[in-house]
């Protein structure tokens, strides 16, 4: 399953990342290297083996439906790159 530049372009789009052509090539090479190594997993027989999302089965850590204080609004907006009228702002772009 060799990764092509096209795959890398597609994945970059999904991940909201951008690369120049040279970086694209480097990433294609790196991913192929790593995935080539990962390929060895196919040697392991996993027929009928269940998945393990966690190291051991864990069930039902649930919370009671009780309201607790939220953050102060100032704290909620504390790290906003841009805010206005107590809202997070995403500017429209002038092209």
């Amino acid at each position: 399953m060799a990764v092509t530049i096209k795959d890398v372009e597609y994945v970059a789009k999904l991940a909201r990342l951008e690369f120049n052509e040279q970086q694209m090539q480097k990433f294609t090479q790196d991913l192929n290297g790593i995935l080539g190594y990962v390929e060895k997993l196919s040697e392991v027989d996993t027929e009928g083996v269940e998945i393990s999302i966690h190291p051991f089965p864990m069930f039902n850590a649930l919370r009671e439906d009780i309201v607790r204080p939220s953050l102060d609004r100032e704290e909620a907006l504390l790290n906003a790159p841009e805010k206005e009228d107590n809202l997070f702002k995403v500017p429209k772009v002038i092209e």
Binding site: L41, V44, T46, V49, E50, I51, S52, P55, F56
Partner: peptide, 10 residues
């Protein structure tokens, strides 16, 4: 596949 191999490692 990785999650299944994980089960076997566990």
């Amino acid at each position: 596949k990785a999650l299944r191999v994980r089960t076997r490692i566990i």
